[in-house]
């Protein structure tokens, strides 16, 4: 998964639906650990501003 940091508002909605705890949010940014990620696309679907895309 890839995060467009220009769009991301660091709201944490993606974190709440990640089944494998692969997303970390700090004060200023969100990071996705692609080693943990299982490509379920939950984060991409709920992101309110569609800042997450598949990293193809």
């Amino acid at each position: 998964m890839k995060i467009n940091r220009e769009l991301c508002d660091v709201c944490g909605t993606c974190v709440s639906v990640c089944p494998v705890d692969a997303i970390i949010v700090s004060e200023f940014k969100v990071d996705i650990d692609n080693m943990k990620c299982i490509n379920c696309l939950n984060c991409l679907k709920v992101c309110p501003i569609k800042a997450i895309t598949e990293d193809k």
Binding site: T13, S16, P48
Partner: peptide
Amino acid sequence: DTSLRLEDIDTCV
């Protein structure tokens, strides 16, 4: 396990 099903979160603006 605190993860939510997609059905159980509202995405908001």
